[in-house]
């Protein structure tokens, strides 16, 4: 389905995750962040989002462990930056699929 975010029409799934990684831009990220009650994005947020997009483009599965080991941010801070389910929120804002199981 399509949705207008920050004035741009993008493809999203039923849960509002972008389905085309290339349609993402920083304005879209900021708009989703407000919707997800993460609030205005600061420099540390952007660092995490960039790391997640890099990992995704390399085909690496996202994990809390990976973020803790990344050197970008420790896990506590990751939770403070993206409260209440940081992986699913950060991946939504980063325009990448949420971590999922097989079913």
């Amino acid at each position: 389905m399509e949705k207008i975010i920050a004035g741009v029409t993008v493809d999203v799934n039923a849960e509002g995750y972008l389905t085309q990684i290339s349609q993402w831009n920083e304005n879209i990220a900021s708009a989703i962040a407000v919707e997800e009650e993460v609030g205005p994005l600061g420099p540390k947020h952007w660092e995490v989002l960039k790391y997640l997009r890099d990992q995704q483009s390399r085909g690496t599965a996202l994990s809390i462990r990976g973020i803790g080991k990344s050197g970008v941010v420790d896990i506590k801070t990751f939770y403070e930056l993206f409260p209440n389910g940081p992986l699913k929120k950060a991946s939504k804002i980063a325009g990448i699929p949420k971590p999922a199981s097989c079913i």
Partner: peptide, 12 residues
């Protein structure tokens, strides 16, 4: 679970 639900795929 560390995931967002017991079932994370829409059809399941």
């Amino acid at each position: 679970t560390p995931l967002s639900g017991a079932f994370t795929k829409p059809r399941a």
